[in-house]
Write a protein that binds this DNA or RNA. Structure first.
Lengths: 330, 330
DNA sequence: GTGAAAGCGCTAACAT
DNA sequence: ATGTTAGCGCTTTCAC
């Protein structure tokens, strides 16, 4: 591989001039610039990123640590982040923590070692519990998960409000016994749980909650157990798209009619929720915008490390469909 | 940040000894090793990756360039790759080329600049057309897309066979007019197209193909046009999960009964294909295994650059469901 | 078993 | 406008 010295020699100038041309700096004659550019072309020269980083002490790279890459919610966020990063000429390292605090810690250390300019993170609950931006050598923006009192930049859905509205919708449809399936292992799950509780209490109804690990398999098992346990609830709400999937699979397996025998609703407007019969009522999240806001927040924070803490709270959209509305057919 | 020199001073040894301990090399007394390790601990020292890479001239990092991160097929592959890489202590840079040759070229250059140890790539058609591993400074393993005569390590489905079996299934169900929706912009699409043609010819039937861009929106548009064009075909086959989604959406919008008025089938056993009514017949790909094979191939190639070219061809599984079988209900 | 020192490729301060 | 050179943090001869 050609080095900067080779280019300098080929162009008959010093390495300093080459470096200046590379950085697009002023103070180089048009003549020299041309010669250097020709030499770069001729030698197919590319700057060594490792050397550049060693010198500059930063990597011009962003980190993105998602909790589950198989969840379309996070892939959509990834795409948004990547779009904006690409347009800004930034690299992004996408990592999948798989809801595992150990993997998460590993990747955060890796980010430090890589000297990334900043990180977007959807933290596991244990980490969020004691999360402090000051513990890290790089700026961090939280996405999807954040406690009210977490002192960090963050982009989140108004989870309590979203769950409240979804629950109220069910109550308005005449449901009394409404079960709520939520991942106790994430802040988001708990906040949605709180919104659900608020709606139930306001209506004078008894909450019925089922905590679980936030993946399809667990959702299936927990739902099956619930359905087998005597009297059916009027409705079941899933606090994420993945859980909703498991929920529906179990309801189907049990041969129950929706919305006749039981009503169903959940979070995340995944494409298939419109295709099943009946279509599923969901609380849609503005996923792409969550990702876009997150990277914009991060870039601002990087440009201005001392700016005040920011939180972007996005509102979800209730999409009522046949799975909760008696008369309606999808 | 503590440097290796700080550690050396704190331990009262030279940087060379610290480096030896870091590499786990022999030739260091137990005494010294202990002192160094304590100093590392005390200073919370972490080696600078940029410096290490500059010296070592390699990054111990793998690249993964997928064509569409929103396609669950690729996220599942990503997860497999990441799993294996994590267990081997390797970093992986995941990039989304978004079916765009320009982005793809950008990321391939980036991989070169990063001096990655190797790359897993699902190439766009233009790139695949003239793809030569020798053009790159790092080993490459192709996934999902590869021509018969491409001279590169690759892991692919037996696409022609898969499409053939899927088509034969439809023919066996009595379908005569079978339309095939395929992405002309990928080798995989064309190979599946070939399998479909073979089945149709063998049965003496007229092929009807609809080339399109491989995304949900285009699939929807193309299907709607097709459905509006006079006489309905007996069946429509989608060559990927994403296209299948768009196809079903359009069939629903047109208010057609499946399998009564039209039959439907596609590739990729996505969770929702089991949940819609009727359930959809699919040709399932072993996604996780595709990813795992790819990284294993890559690691072998890195360990042994001169080994013979390898190709792993995986067989898909036909899962017949209600969308193609008259009597059956999902 | 241990240490001194060269040098990976680059940028930037300083000199001309 | 251009060149010289120190040094970023690390690994690795080579000498002891």
């Amino acid at each position: 591989m050609a080095r900067i010295l080779d280019v300098a020699r080929a162009a008959g100038v010093s390495v300093a001039s080459v470096s200046r041309v590379l950085q697009g700096q002023a103070g180089v004659s048009e003549e020299t610039r041309k010669r250097v550019q020709d030499a770069i072309e001729a030698l197919d020269y590319r700057p060594d990123l490792a050397a550049r980083r060693l010198r500059a002490r930063r990597a011009d790279t962003l980190g993105l640590i998602v909790s589950d890459i198989r969840n379309p919610f996070f892939t959509e966020i990834s795409r948004a982040v990547e779009d904006v990063a690409y347009r800004n000429g930034l690299r992004v390292m996408l990592c999948n923590a798989d809801e595992d605090p150990e993997k998460e810690a590993f990747y955060l250390e890796m980010m430090r070692d890589e000297k990334v300019s900043g990180v977007i993170l959807s933290p596991t609950l244990p980490l969020l519990g004691h999360f402090k931006p000051a513990d890290y050598s790089f700026p961090i923006v939280l996405v999807d998960r954040c406690e009210r009192d977490t002192e960090a930049d963050a982009v989140v859905l108004d989870n309590a409000d979203a769950a409240l509205r979804l629950s109220e919708h069910l109550i308005a449809q005449g449901c009394r016994r409404i079960a709520f399936l939520y991942g106790a292992s994430s802040a988001t799950g708990r906040q949605r749980h709180d919104g659900y509780l608020a709606a139930m209490r306001a209506a004078g109804l008894m909450p019925e909650v089922e905590p679980l690990q936030p993946n399809v398999e667990r959702a299936r098992v927990v739902t099956s157990t619930l359905l087998a346990r005597g009297e059916l609830p009027d409705a079941i709400v899933a606090r994420s798209g993945l859980i909703l999937l498991g929920l529906l699979e179990s309801v189907r397996a049990a041969g129950l009619a929706v919305p006749g025998q039981i009503r169903i609703a959940g979070f995340d407007d995944m494409p298939w929720t419109r295709l099943v019969t009946p279509a599923i009522t969901v609380l849609a999240q503005p996923t792409y915008e969550i990702g876009r806001s997150a990277i914009e927040l991060l870039l601002q924070r990087i440009a201005n490390p001392d700016q005040a803490q920011r939180r972007v709270v996005l509102r979800g959209e209730l999409i009522a469909r046949g799975s909760t509305v008696a008369g309606e057919q999808a």
